[in-house]
Amino acid sequence: MVMVRRMLEYRGTGDRVTRILGLVTLVLVAVTAWLGLVVSPPDKVQGQLVRLIYVHPAAATACYVGFGLCAFASLAYLWPRTRSRRWDRLAAASAEIGVVFCILTLVTGSIWGRPAWGVWWTWDARLTLTALLLAVFLGYLALRRTGGDPDSRAKRCAVVAVVCALLVPVDHEATTWWQTLHQGNTILRPNPLIHGWQLLTMLISFVTYGFLFAWLLVHRYRVEVLEDRFEDEGYEVAIAERRAEGGVVTIGPSPVLSESLSVSTQKAGQS
């Protein structure tokens, strides 16, 4: 209880709600791990390998949600009536989390593929499209880092995000449209292929990844707000510093930036 109270009292980038969200996520991760590693039985055909389905499909779904949300936020930014930097920040945050889950999907798929198919990688439609999806969103993230006027950058990125997200439905339907080595739908079919503890654990894993996604998104969005603020006020701070060196009194930057700058100056002095 003391630890929980300390965690709730910790003042980081989060607030009370997001700390509770984080705690719920942590509990769900623990429950999923316990169900997946202890309670759920090994599969008759796949043996212990089946436990990867409590990680891989949920990670892939979180990846699709991330890229889909990025496209939605980008469209909202492009639409003149709803244009707001908030949508741009949401697009940036969700794309980055989507990339993390996309890498996780490819890595866990590869770990499963080695014993199941005998290879780490095969040129299957689903695998290839997922790798392409990762590549196009890495390009999107690179574009986001090009600097320049924030509004101009946001518009360029929004156009690219919408184009990139066209691959998401193609990747999702790859197992239906092409004959692939990758298995098709396991749950969303008239007769689901798994039952009992396996089905329950898999469903809980989706909920867990949903919470994890939401928690990461909130924090990444806040970092994006701080980055925007740093970009907006950084120039002002630099001028204020130069003037201070010359002994000219000026209007100071925001308290957050002043604090972070004084900390960095102290660290630089110590080193």
Partner: peptide, 8 residues
């Protein structure tokens, strides 16, 4: 980096 994956 932007074009090559898209035109794959």
């Amino acid at each position: 980096l932007l074009i090559l994956p898209v035109v794959a």
